[in-house]
Computed example of a mutant assay.
Amino acid sequence: MDTFKAWDFGVIDFLDVILVAILLYYVYRLIKGTVAINIFIGIIILYFVWKLTEFLNMELLNTIFGGFMKVGIIALIVVFQPEIRKFLLMVGSTNIAGKGKFLSNLKFVKNETLNETNVEELVKACSKMGSSRTGALIVLERNNNLDFLLATGDETNINVSKAIIESIFFKNSPLHDGAIIIANKVVKATRVILPVNMEKNIPEHFGLRHRAAIGITEKTDALALVVSEESGQISYIRNGEFSIFKDTAELIQKIKADLT
């Protein structure tokens, strides 16, 4: 029939859909597990309601929702400020020229995680250091590239193991000060200096290690493990919020879930 026209779907349209899908997927991964995910879902629902009112010619509702969607961009910038900062950091820290492989350096499509053995070895090391009151600060890289921090410490390329982690944070070791960064089953750097959060209220018995862990997990999507030198407790920090785990099996499962 003449009223129906063939859907002209070209290469550019296909590329447009793919890029939007990749962008939405990364946004979802960035805010997954945070309060922002509920806000994001709410915005999507409002958008479809707006389009529905437009389709049904409900002019008054369409005008109200349309005005909200147009002005709401300012509110979105405020609400999603931490996520936007992490996104821009990811884009800015992507090394396009490094290694000559553009796609392998883009964190949209790369999913680098520690394998099960690494996570278990990591938690075992933290548990052992906790029993001996050995302080430690471990940062696990996820999507946001942390190479901008490497210059503050000593770059390394050491496979993760319980013995290695314990030897690095041994009190007489020259490498025990600062944090270590782990990515793709490898210790990328030791003695790293992290940005310290001085605004958030945390218990008095938590010191600079915990503030540094909060700072880096607020500014990036990294995960952090802190072993308290005073109490031996293991703290797990994600998105600036920390939890105390006494059950190592539960901690292992939590890290594995967050790394996937």
Results as ranks from 00 to 15, higher is better:
residue 80 F to Y: 10
residue 236 Y to V: 12
residue 193 I to M: 13
residue 120 E to A: 03
residue 83 E to P: 01
residue 109 V to N: 06
residue 194 L to I: 08
residue 170 F to A: 15
residue 259 L to S: 11
residue 186 V to Q: 13
residue 45 I to Q: 00
residue 149 L to Y: 09
residue 148 F to M: 13
residue 116 E to N: 09
residue 204 E to V: 15
residue 95 N to V: 01
residue 127 S to G: 06
residue 30 L to R: 04
residue 70 K to G: 05
residue 191 R to Y: 09
residue 97 A to Y: 13
residue 95 N to W: 00
residue 125 A to Y: 00
residue 170 F to T: 14
residue 217 T to Y: 04
residue 3 T to L: 15
residue 66 G to C: 09
residue 149 L to E: 03
residue 218 E to C: 10
residue 244 I to S: 02
residue 13 D to Y: 05
residue 144 N to W: 04
residue 52 L to C: 07
residue 54 E to L: 12
residue 109 V to S: 01
residue 117 T to M: 03
residue 143 N to S: 09
residue 173 S to G: 10
residue 69 M to G: 00
residue 203 P to F: 04
residue 161 S to R: 04
residue 248 T to F: 11
residue 176 H to Y: 15
residue 157 N to E: 12
residue 43 I to C: 01
residue 241 E to T: 15
residue 223 L to W: 00
residue 109 V to P: 00
residue 78 V to K: 04
residue 180 I to K: 06
residue 52 L to V: 13
residue 187 V to N: 12
residue 76 L to G: 06
residue 47 Y to I: 01
residue 22 I to R: 08
residue 71 V to C: 08
residue 222 A to K: 01
residue 139 V to C: 00
residue 72 G to K: 00
residue 143 N to C: 04
residue 116 E to M: 06
residue 58 M to S: 12
residue 80 F to K: 06
residue 133 R to G: 01
residue 176 H to V: 12
residue 131 S to Q: 00
residue 62 N to L: 07
residue 47 Y to L: 07
residue 71 V to N: 07
residue 115 N to A: 07
residue 83 E to H: 12
residue 171 K to H: 10
residue 41 I to R: 15
residue 20 V to G: 00
residue 67 G to H: 05
residue 99 K to V: 10
residue 199 E to G: 15
residue 35 V to C: 04
residue 173 S to E: 14
residue 241 E to P: 04
residue 129 M to Y: 04
residue 189 A to N: 11
residue 174 P to M: 14
residue 67 G to A: 06
residue 211 R to H: 12
residue 248 T to R: 15
residue 126 C to E: 00
residue 32 K to H: 01
residue 92 G to E: 00
residue 99 K to S: 12
residue 80 F to L: 11
residue 259 L to D: 07
residue 121 E to Y: 06
residue 171 K to R: 13
residue 62 N to C: 05
residue 44 I to V: 13
residue 132 S to T: 03
residue 95 N to D: 11
residue 56 L to E: 10
residue 146 L to T: 05
residue 129 M to P: 06
residue 117 T to F: 02
residue 246 K to G: 15
residue 183 A to V: 08
residue 88 L to I: 11
residue 218 E to P: 07
residue 56 L to T: 08
residue 208 L to T: 15
residue 179 A to N: 07
residue 83 E to M: 12
residue 27 V to W: 09
residue 34 T to S: 15
residue 237 I to M: 08
residue 161 S to F: 05
residue 163 A to C: 02
residue 167 S to E: 15
residue 216 I to D: 04
residue 27 V to M: 12
residue 28 Y to E: 02
residue 247 D to I: 11
residue 176 H to G: 05
residue 45 I to K: 01
residue 225 L to W: 04
residue 256 K to A: 10
residue 241 E to G: 10
residue 108 F to S: 07
residue 216 I to E: 03
residue 224 A to D: 08
residue 65 F to M: 09
residue 243 S to D: 12
residue 177 D to A: 15
residue 206 F to R: 10
residue 199 E to S: 15
residue 114 L to I: 08
residue 209 R to E: 11
residue 63 T to I: 13
residue 202 I to T: 08
residue 77 I to K: 08
residue 111 N to S: 01
residue 177 D to K: 13
residue 13 D to G: 02
residue 55 F to N: 11
residue 110 K to R: 10
residue 7 W to V: 12
residue 135 G to E: 10
residue 64 I to N: 03
residue 2 D to V: 11
residue 105 N to P: 02
residue 187 V to C: 14
residue 181 I to F: 05
residue 139 V to L: 00
residue 187 V to G: 06
residue 94 T to E: 06
residue 6 A to C: 02
